[in-house]
Nucleic acid binder design. Structure first.
Ligand SMILES: [Zn+2]
Ligand SMILES: [Zn+2]
Length: 545
DNA sequence: GTATGCGGGAGAT
DNA sequence: ATCTCCCGCATAC
């Protein structure tokens, strides 16, 4: 038995015994345990534990109480190649933990999402730890038995967090030049943007023998992309207390959780459920007001720009993660295999070919290249239409525009004054993008560019057996990339915007919309973008014009 | 940015 | 009264 445990005491005792023998620090204390640590025991002084424990208020300044946050697991409970399960460490910080939820499972072969397995080890409540300091000892007492696996150790979580900073890694990445520096073309040939621009302007728009796509964008379009994230909340008339009416809080388009999706595409069935307040036709019949509607996906304009900035960062991160896997498929690209957490594989491995419809055997493997889009709805307050103005509307394409950022999963529609219905909206102030430092949108959209196999690429597509055997729908007769130029040779990463995708790229594969680069895509982007990239295929590689 | 601690407060029992 | 959980705030790294 533990030496410090030889006296009976309770953490709440008025007089705690003075002990002379101490316990070794127990990182994984489980069960109803008590330990006494030396006052100079560093782990005890930090109240640390292998379990993810968060402070909880017991209104007792003398006794620190912590409760267990459980463990972050894969929603599909997948098994890693080495037989282990995914069991990440929940962030202690609420905000950070919220962001973890819904992230793709780190298992490269899994389409699952991370979710918190809460601890109910103490009569249905989380296991609790109590810490009490006295002059001669640090007393520890735990109540409950964890009913979940151990999370990864703190050090591992910290290392993983560092490793997952994709943007940080981007600086040293092979693709950073090609993607973030417009003067470097994707085939590695340094070429000024201006040169390419003028070339593109004069390039003949021929199709035969050439393959062209539009991966770069003009500023106006980028601004539109940003602005479309300024949107009104959709309205929903529902009873949030009813189980059947509960909304999925994950908000990614392809969430497979059982809750009702709140992903509100234009034109799909969700529209009827969550009508836009700008669209009177969406209001239920015989309803002249929005009374009874509950706004969802609200955006608080007071910090919308900050949210946009965060969302853009996240988005860029995710895009980069995809591309990084393509260009740097080897495990040691960032020395991850030398780290303890490499048991999870390359941190971003799983993300490239997630199917948007995990339950559909026929789903196109290309229709999910952005399955890693992180989508978390934050509880937020109302946006104010008064902070919006028509200047943020971009022409007649707005009905096609759709924000896929995690807390702005709403389309960019007309801006209406909602203060009539939501008086809270009367007070907010006008915001101005220019006053904020955002990542340049062109960078983001450059990251979104269709990505083409490079000659140095040995494994292609990476981590996917399915794509290689995949064929374009023979009905897609206009597609330039077919036949011997199978979709193996290109990846489109930007088409996670399913609403836009459905409207613009109605190609069907096995009954599912596809993300193929095709004539429709070119046609659409041809109007929206002022730059295009042409290439032709010769001697097993793409030559860029 | 996240981890950690504090303390007010609401709601449950 | 006691307990849990939520939240904002403040500090440390
Ligand atoms: Zn998984
Ligand atoms: Zn636990």
């Amino acid at each position: 038995m533990c030496p410090g445990n030889n006296q009976e005491w309770d953490i709440n005792d008025n007089n705690i015994p003075r002990v002379t023998t101490y316990d070794q620090f127990q990182e994984w204390s489980d069960g109803h345990t008590r330990f006494v640590y030396r006052p100079d025991c560093e782990e005890a002084r930090r109240h640390s534990s292998g379990w993810a424990m968060r402070n909880t208020n017991n209104h007792n300044v003398h006794i620190l109480k912590k409760s267990c946050l459980g463990v972050l697991v894969c929603s599909l409970r997948c098994t890693l190649d080495n037989g282990n399960k995914v069991h990440l460490r929940p962030a202690i910080c609420d905000k950070a933990r919220k962001k973890q939820q819904g992230k793709p499972c780190p298992n490269r072969k899994c389409n699952g999402r991370l979710e918190v397995l809460p601890c109910r080890g103490h009569c249905g409540y989380p296991v609790t730890h109590f810490w009490r300091h006295t002059e001669f000892a640090i007393f520890f007492q735990a109540k409950g038995n964890h009913d979940h696996p151990r999370p990864e150790p703190k050090a591992s979580a910290e290392a993983r967090r560092m490793g997952q900073s994709a943007l940080r890694m981007l600086k040293s990445s092979k693709i950073s030049g090609a993607l973030l520096n417009p003067s470097v073309s994707l085939n590695g040939n340094a070429e000024s943007r201006k040169t390419r621009e003028s070339k593109n302007k004069t390039a003949s728009n021929h199709n035969s023998g050439h393959y062209q796509w539009y991966g770069e964008t003009n500023i106006a379009y980028c601004e539109a992309q940003l602005s479309k994230a300024i949107a009104e909340p959709r309205l929903a008339k529902f009873d949030a207390n009813l189980e059947s009416e509960k909304l999925c809080s994950h908000s990614f388009a392809d969430c497979t959780c059982s809750l009702r999706s709140n992903y509100n595409y234009i034109g799909n069935s969700m529209d009827a459920a969550f009508p836009s307040i700008s669209d009177n036709s969406n209001k239920h019949a015989n309803e002249s007001t929005f009374d009874g509607y509950t706004p969802i996906l609200q955006v608080d304009v007071s910090d919308l720009t900050q949210k946009m900035s965060n969302a853009i960062d996240t988005h860029a991160d995710n895009v980069f993660q995809n591309l990084d896997k393509i260009v740097n498929p080897s495990m040691d690209a960032y020395n991850f295999d030398s780290r303890e957490h490499s048991k999870y594989g390359m941190p971003f491995d799983s993300y490239q070919y997630q199917k948007p419809m995990a339950n559909s055997a026929n789903a196109s493997p290309l229709n999910g290249t952005h399955g890693n889009q992180v989508a978390v709805n934050w509880e937020s307050s109302f946006y104010s239409s008064e902070t919006m103005n028509q200047n943020f509307c971009y022409g007649n394409l707005m009905h096609l525009q759709h924000a896929n950022f995690y807390d702005q999963q709403i389309y960019f529609g007309d801006i209406y004054d909602t203060s009539e219905h939501f008086p809270q909206n009367s007070n907010s102030e006008m915001m101005n993008f220019d006053e904020y430092e955002l990542m340049h949108p062109n960078d983001i959209l450059a990251l979104d560019a269709p990505f083409v196999k490079q000659e140095t690429q040995s494994a292609w597509p990476p981590f996917s057996e399915e794509v290689r055997s995949y064929e374009l729908d023979p009905m897609a007769t206009q597609c330039d990339l077919k036949g011997k130029d199978s979709p193996d040779n290109y990846i489109v990463t930007s088409l996670d915007d399913r609403q836009q995708h459905n409207e613009c790229f109605p190609l069907q594969w096995n009954g599912q919309s596809s993300n193929g680069v095709n004539a429709l895509q070119r046609e659409f982007f041809g109007d929206s973008l002022n730059m295009k990239t042409e290439a032709y295929y010769e001697n097993d590689k793409y030559i860029f014009l």
